[in-house]
């Protein structure tokens, strides 16, 4: 059986990580594949894994009864999805669905958590990488929230509202 180690070593998320850590992480990894439309996980389920995307596109969605599923963001090859396995109570906060055929490496969250507890250096290394991604996603979410392309979102402040009806 061939190992996932070379794939993990090359993935942008883990690139540059100490070889010994990669080996440890490989021990928690397995290859997975999702057909288009298949869910990687659903909101509320236990978050036992996270995914390193190798190929394809995954959409993160939140379901509402009125508007069905609202897509929030997509992630693709070279990126990762999921950090709920790191944060108690380890439940997913959104649905993740494969847009097209998705190949990924699933990492066992429990297994990783244990290894991080045993080796805080590795835990810190991994956490730094997750923090970077969390920061990026937070910034993106903020920008998304601003709805910057909406005709009346260009400029904030009271005058925006005052002049809204005073079209020119």
């Amino acid at each position: 059986m061939h190992t996932l180690e070379p794939i993990l070593t090359e993935h942008p998320f883990l690139k540059g990580l100490n070889h010994a850590y990669i080996q440890l992480i490989t021990g928690c990894a397995r290859n997975v594949r999702f057909e288009p439309g298949q869910f990687l996980f659903r909101e509320g389920e236990e978050a036992n894994e996270f995914y390193i995307i190798r190929h394809g596109r995954v959409v993160m969605e939140i379901f509402t009864p009125e508007r069905t599923a609202i897509p929030i963001q997509t992630v693709e090859e070279g990126e990762i999805i999921g950090w709920s396995w790191l944060i108690p109570p380890y439940h997913w906060h959104f649905d993740a669905q494969a847009v097209d055929m998705v190949r990924a490496i699933a990492l066992d969250g429990k297994c990783l958590r244990n290894k991080c507890e045993e080796d805080h250096d590795m835990g810190y290394e991994l956490l730094k990488r997750f923090a970077h991604i969390m920061e990026q996603r937070l910034q993106a979410a903020r920008l998304q929230l601003l709805d910057v392309y909406h005709p009346h979102s260009g400029v904030a402040g009271p005058s925006a509202r005052a002049l809204k009806n005073k079209k020119r």
Partner: peptide, 21 residues
């Protein structure tokens, strides 16, 4: 796109997320 629609199979997310790719 900032907001996906039902049949949209493309990328969803703000334009800055494209820069690292």
């Amino acid at each position: 796109v900032d907001r996906g629609e039902k049949d949209w199979k493309g990328h969803i997310g703000v334009v800055t997320t494209l820069i690292p790719r």
